[in-house]
């Protein structure tokens, strides 16, 4: 197990591993997405409260879950990069940031499109929404800092600090906004009536969740590969790979 882990952590074997894995992960992701969306849009019954608007759940919830998951993953990779100075952890952390930012933006926008017909407002300053917005800025901060410094290792470790400090703050933001909302009582409190989800609504949701996770994994693997190539541009294995790759190109 550990030898396998160590071998994977070396850049050339991670690169080959990602090359073998990524096409399958991405392909399966798109196939499952097509199945999940068709199921969700055509065959799942409409919600008795929300009607057909509830179908936005099939894009909103997977994006939200993955944006949080990617931030957690990024912070863990960042902590590994800071504590053990693992090169691969730095690369994976930086690869997760743009993917997470896209999913966070999708979450916010689809959430607004869901909120308008359901609550009558595009946006409310609720804890979950605000935390997601803060997440967007944290991802942006990691992306900007990850490329701000010329020395890539210093840049990556600086970004790792922001990822780690940020994850401590997300629950604090949630708590503070909840407190803030409770301060002025009498203001209209929006009820987030959860749609009572039945099995034939839930199965496509799980399929969409898995599909989004696979697509995110695919994008992270590919971006990590590019980061590795940039870092290791002068090493033998990249030079050998380049010769092979350019020979194979038409």
């Amino acid at each position: 197990m550990w030898t396998w882990f160590h071998r994977l952590a070396s850049p050339p074997s991670f690169f080959r591993f990602a090359d073998r894995l990524a096409p399958w992960v991405g392909g399966l992701g798109f196939v499952l997405l097509a199945i999940g969306w068709t199921w969700g849009l055509v065959y799942a019954p409409p919600d008795y409260q929300q009607g057909d608007a509830f179908r936005i759940i099939y894009v909103h919830v997977p994006a939200a879950a993955l944006s949080l998951g990617l931030y957690t993953g990024m912070a863990i990779a960042g902590a590994c990069a800071l504590i053990w100075r693992m090169k691969l952890a730095e690369v994976v952390m930086l690869a997760m940031a743009p993917v997470g930012m896209v999913l966070t933006a999708v979450t916010l926008l689809t959430g607004m499109l869901w909120g308008k017909p359901m609550w009558g407002a595009w946006w409310v300053w609720d804890a979950r929404l605000t935390a997601e917005l803060v997440l967007l800025f944290l991802f942006l901060g990691v992306i900007v800092l990850g490329d701000a410094i010329e020395d890539p290792r210093r840049s990556a470790r600086a970004a790792a600090w922001i990822a780690v400090v940020g994850i401590v703050n997300v629950p604090i933001v949630k708590f503070s906004v909840n407190w803030w909302n409770s301060l002025h009582q009498g203001a209209t409190v929006l009820s987030f009536g959860k749609p009572a989800i039945t099995v034939d609504m839930a199965i496509p949701l799980y399929i969409c969740l898995l599909a989004t996770a696979l697509l995110a994994a695919h994008a992270v693997l590919r971006r990590a590969q590019v980061r590795l190539l940039q870092r290791e541009a002068r090493t033998q294995w990249v030079k050998a790979l380049r010769a092979q790759e350019l020979g194979a190109l038409p």
């Binding site: 997405l33 099939y58 894009v59 994006a63 689809t110 308008k116 017909p117 590919r222 790979l241």
Partner: peptide, 28 residues
Amino acid sequence: YVWASFALTAAGLVWMSLAASRARRNWF
């Protein structure tokens, strides 16, 4: 609302995967 959110998500996910694949191919 439904179609706008699905179109937006499709654009986001497709861009996310294609940009990443393209970056790897173009690097060489």
